[in-house]
Design a protein around this nucleic acid. Sequence first.
DNA 1: TGGTATATGCCGACCGTCGGTATATGCTGC
DNA 2: GCAGCATATACCGACGGTCGGCATATACCA
Lengths: 114, 114
Amino acid sequence: MLPGMNEPTFLILTALAGEPMHGYAVIEDVEHMTDGRVRLRAGTLYAALDRLRGEGLIEVDREEVVQSRLRRYYRLTGAGEQSLEAETARLRAQATLAEGRLRARRTNFGGATA
Amino acid sequence: MLPGMNEPTFLILTALAGEPMHGYAVIEDVEHMTDGRVRLRAGTLYAALDRLRGEGLIEVDREEVVQSRLRRYYRLTGAGEQSLEAETARLRAQATLAEGRLRARRTNFGGATA
DNA sequence: TGGTATATGCCGACCGTCGGTATATGCTGC
DNA sequence: GCAGCATATACCGACGGTCGGCATATACCA
């Protein structure tokens, strides 16, 4: 059905659209982007990263070792960029649609519903 | 985490934001709204309807019998309207965010990624 | 010595959706 | 007359993505 992607997945791709980033940095970036509303679980993040890599939407950029801790950086692929663009257009279209109906609703029966 | 709602759920609420509608009509409306991309399964629809009713976002408007077939009409509640408004704002915000990053990306390294 | 931040990863559970089936009735075409 | 499709609601098992928690390891601070 060409399913739309879920919010966490979308936010992960958006984070990586900025610049290559390692997993933990993605968690922080997503938290900042959403004003603290979405705090990705480690399980969600690394599972999504593996999945998106399998789908060819992201790929490993490089690996670094900082203070004897591994940092694996990911970046968007061309396919990932296209996918994110398409998804963004979808979100816009649906927002516009809902706004139109909500507006019409208010002008018709301005606040009479339960 | 104040989870964002899924696409099918959002589209069901959007359909009902227009006017009270019975289940099967929602399926058709969603299909038209998405240009045939999203074709809700009966299982998805009626399960979501029950769930949304339990959450107080929609309620039964009336029941009709047409050609000895039952039609149960649903409508948005005030809470449902607020919820849909909030969700719409969220979609817009996220679309804007992703677009900003995609634009910056293009001006910086115009199409050099894999 | 304990707690927090960094960083990756695995695990079971949950929930919303998928896909199919059941149950009826009415309409259309062969 | 009967098959097939549209209408309309409802239940079911399966699946996939996320959740929440835990494990592991190092560095820093109180």
